[in-house]
Nucleic acid binder design. Structure first.
Length: 291
DNA sequence: AAGAGAGCCAACCGCCGATTG
DNA sequence: CCAATCGGCGGTTGGCTCTCT
């Protein structure tokens, strides 16, 4: 037997919201907040709506800073990579895309992105990679591509997949292999580095069961307001503003944390070499020898 | 121009886990 | 400890719009 309905369906309005209802709901929440009780909210706000309907309307449409409209290539990449690693956990995926709702992402995936992938139509800059593999691969840029541009995000926002740029090398990233690693072990991972080449590696995000494993800092800051930047900044934070891991010389200082247990921003950055990152995404990962 | 089909997306449904009394 | 309640989530649906024939 299912649970009782949350409201009297006979006495609540259903279907699309009118501008007047939107205004009422928004005005009420702006003034009083949700009060932690969606069920009681519609009555207080003077709405003949189910509390769940109010909640959905607020979260998916009325809430401030909601982003509507086309998804960017970068957002495509994040969705693809997270879907490959955790599946249809839309709320978790949405949490990585500020301004996007789980419903939006779900709709976008079901109506567009899935077809893009099936048809081999990756985000425009990454077609080559996805035509050969359902999983994104990691690209590594040579140091010159990092330091030569004041706007890191504009030059590297498309580096999650193989690129046709000659200076970019790609690494295969079989995301499903992460599931074999106990997330608790990953927190204390340490690596040394001997690599002589520099580079830049795409953002790395994955999950282990309910735990979110992430590399990089939560609020990376690698550029000053005038657009200038330094390698030192990159090294310190480990990632750029797009959560991409920065490699320079033979090191990348990145954070690695269990999202559910401790914010990754609280973890000390650890040194990883390019080789070690490669191993992260290759067979060593499957064998747990990374830890 | 009109009908059919496809695409899109807001909203609903029902289940699950957490919380509360 | 247990049942009731609620918030949150993912899957699904229905209706509107767009495109094609």
């Amino acid at each position: 037997m299912g649970r009782a309905p949350c409201c009297d369906k006979a006495n609540v309005k259903r279907g699309p919201w009118s501008p007047e209802e939107d205004a009422k709901l928004k005005e009420y929440i702006d003034k009083f907040g949700t009060g932690g009780n969606w069920i009681a909210l519609p009555q207080k706000a003077g709405l003949r709506r189910c509390g769940k309907s109010c909640r959905l309307r607020w979260l998916n449409y009325l809430r401030p800073n909601i982003k509507h409209g086309d998804f960017t290539d970068n957002e495509d990449r994040i969705i693809c990579s997270l879907f490959a690693s955790i599946g249809s956990r839309w709320s978790i995926i949405a949490a990585q895309l500020p301004g996007r709702t789980d419903n939006d992402i779900k709709n976008y995936w079901n109506t567009k992105l899935k077809k893009k992938l099936i048809m081999g139509m990756a985000p425009s800059s990454q077609k080559n990679s996805l035509q050969s593999s359902p999983f994104p691969s990691i690209s590594v840029l040579e140091p010159s591509s990092i330091t030569s541009s004041p706007s890191l995000s504009s030059t590297t926002s498309s580096n999650f997949y193989t690129s046709s740029t000659p200076s970019i090398r790609s690494l295969s990233a079989p995301y499903e292999t992460f599931s074999s690693i106990p997330s608790s072990l990953l927190i204390s991972t340490t690596c040394s580095s001997n690599l002589q080449e520099g580079g830049y590696i795409g953002s790395v995000q994955t999950y282990h069961q309910d735990s979110f494993l992430r590399f990089g800092s939560e609020a990376p800051s690698c550029s000053s307001s005038d657009g200038s930047s330094t390698n030192q900044n990159y090294l310190y934070n480990g990632v750029d503003e797009n959560q991409n891991i920065i490699f320079n010389n033979d090191h990348a200082n990145i954070r690695c944390a269990d999202y559910d247990q401790k914010p990754y921003g609280d973890q000390n950055p650890l040194d990883y070499s390019l080789e070690e990152i490669k191993q992260l995404f290759s067979t060593n990962l499957c064998n747990n020898s990374f830890v």
